[in-house]
Design a protein around this nucleic acid. Structure first.
Length: 480
RNA sequence: CGGGGCGUGGCUCAGACCGGUAGAGCGCACGGUUCGGGUCCGUGAGGUCGAGAGUUCAAAUCUCUCCGCCCCGACCA
């Protein structure tokens, strides 16, 4: 099986990533260009992520709905920036039922247009506002270069679309959702993300303001992990989303949209994984604890098996996502490696020695080797396991945060910036001009990731590129 | 679309330069053996050699065309 081993992250990070996705059976290549099949283990991880998000959306008053995946081509032409942004990557249906269609239908790359159309129909009065709707589904974008989970032709996501009476409310909504995204990333996925504004060049096609959460991968590249946009009246003008206010005056709505996709799975892989394979955060891991029974003959098996089954039942009853690996055709050593590769946070071993001592052996995925190994009594095991899972979750976040902070630099000169973004992020004053942004990209391939909402030093400084006065500091990094 | 690499059982690849009727390891099935860190032995199933055309008595191998995949760049959640 040697040739099947993962390359190490330092040898070839891109190849390590591809192999891990395939080997851990998160996803596989589909027979369609740039598309992937999300396999059950990967989908379970996504479902846990979506559940965490969906709960928060509902707690903040949002409702789920479903809109068509086919959108009339003409809808895209109604908002100038939107069509310019998306037309290069549209998949278009030209035939239906054997006949050429009068108007081609676009396979949705995002649903602002068709939802905007419906909102225009539904919204008449100030009493109808706000409209807070989310949709779970998939979209298609004809990307030139794809990569499993990070950028596939079709990808799964949620897209929220809201309409409000005032700019203030719409902006509040934009940030409310950004906070939810950051909370899910940090407290569920254990990914320390940075919230911020996108620059003019990086913002969404048709947005007045785009915000995002940005995460640092282990190769120090940045991954935009979710976005939340404020549209002002751009889409309400294009689709005539209007309402009568309390003074019987016709007003345009203020709208937002926001999305988080299966890309988040890619972020988890690249933030936490190690050379053994996946490392999943306990809160989202499909299997939180795997039990590996150990025996070398039928006599031992008959002793070990009932205990393993009892422990399994206890953990399950305690609400822990637990799996009992009772395969007879492979050895315990094989199972250890197998579940490590699949990122299960905690392994629980039960063998003859444990039966004798009334104990079990625990092995933490985040701390391979002796450091993460412990022995605990079978009595009160569920509490001990739950506590350990909580600790692992915290330790993953702490480790990722330390890594991120160690790789964010504050270059003193443009020359130094060029050096640091080759293998890290730069946090620098920037005059917010497109020219300076373009120069950095040209010289280093790094782009502005976001102007962070928090952690601005205050006052003013001088732009790291041109030396002119700058109001804000921005992150420069190479992005996925 | 530009640059690079690659298409041979499920996977990783050998065979190609020098044409002669397809191999290995892993995986898979079955039997036995083993089991606290990727057991070992035996038996067996499994291949339009990416596709098409051409050259030839004969093509995985030579020629041409096409298709697909991966990596790097432009586009992007």
């Amino acid at each position: 099986m040697a040739e099947d081993k993962l390359p190490t992250r330092s040898e070839d990070f891109a190849e390590w990533y591809n192999k891990i996705v395939l080997k851990a059976e998160l996803a596989d290549y589909a027979p369609v260009r740039g598309c992937m099949v999300v396999r059950p283990y990967g989908w379970a991880l996504w479902e846990n992520t979506t559940a965490a998000l969906d709960r928060r959306f509902k707690e903040t008053g949002h409702l789920n709905a479903a809109f068509p995946m086919l959108i009339p081509m003409s809808f895209f032409e109604k908002e100038k920036a939107h069509v310019e942004g998306f037309s290069p990557e549209l998949a278009v249906v030209t035939h239906g039922g054997g006949e050429k269609l009068e108007e081609p239908l676009v396979v949705r790359p995002t649903s602002e247009t068709i939802i905007g159309y419906m909102y225009a129909k539904w919204i008449k009065s100030w009493r109808d506002l706000p409209v807070l709707i989310n949709q779970w589904g998939s979209v298609v974008r004809w990307e030139l270069r794809t990569k499993l989970f990070l950028r596939t032709t079709e990808f799964y996501w949620q897209e929220g679309h809201t309409a409000h009476a005032t700019a203030k409310e719409a902006k509040e909504e934009t940030f409310r959702i950004l906070d939810i995204y950051a909370d899910v990333a940090i407290s569920e996925a254990a990914i320390p993300v940075i919230k911020g504004y996108k620059s003019e060049t990086e913002k969404f096609a048709g947005a007045v303001m785009s915000t995002s959460i940005e995460a640092m991968m282990q190769d120090k590249r940045a991954l935009q992990s979710a976005t939340s946009h404020y549209f002002g009246q751009n889409f309400s003008k294009a689709f005539e989303i209007q309402y009568l206010d309390q003074n019987n005056t016709l007003q345009l709505c203020e709208t937002t949209s926001w999305g988080l996709s299966t890309r988040m799975i890619g972020a988890m892989i690249m933030v936490h994984g190690d050379d053994q394979g996946l490392v999943l955060p306990p809160r989202l891991a499909p299997i939180q604890t795997v039990i590996v029974p150990i025996y070398k003959n039928d006599a031992e098996k008959s002793q070990v098996k009932p205990v393993a089954e009892r422990v399994f039942a206890e953990l399950k009853a305690a609400g822990i996502r637990v799996k009992l690996d009772d395969r007879d055709e492979v050895t315990p050593g094989f199972k250890f490696n197998d579940w490590e590769m699949r990122g299960v946070p905690l392994r629980l071993e039960i063998g003859p020695k444990d039966i004798e001592k009334g104990s079990v052996a625990l092995a933490r995925r985040d701390k391979p080797g002796k450091e993460g190994k412990s022995f605990v009594q079978q009595a009160g095991l569920a509490d001990a396991v739950a506590a350990l899972l909580t600790e692992i979750q915290a330790s993953l976040l702490a480790r990722a945060t330390a890594f991120r902070d160690a790789n964010i630099h504050d270059p003193k000169s443009y020359e130094e910036l060029k050096q640091v973004v080759a293998d890290g992020w730069a946090f620098s004053w920037w005059c917010e001009s497109k020219e300076c942004e373009a120069k950095v990209k040209e010289d280093t391939k790094a782009t502005t990731r976001c102007i962070p909402l928090e952690g601005q030093p205050g006052g003013t400084g001088t732009c790291i590129v041109c030396g002119k006065k700058a109001e804000k500091k921005v992150y420069f990094a190479r992005a996925y």
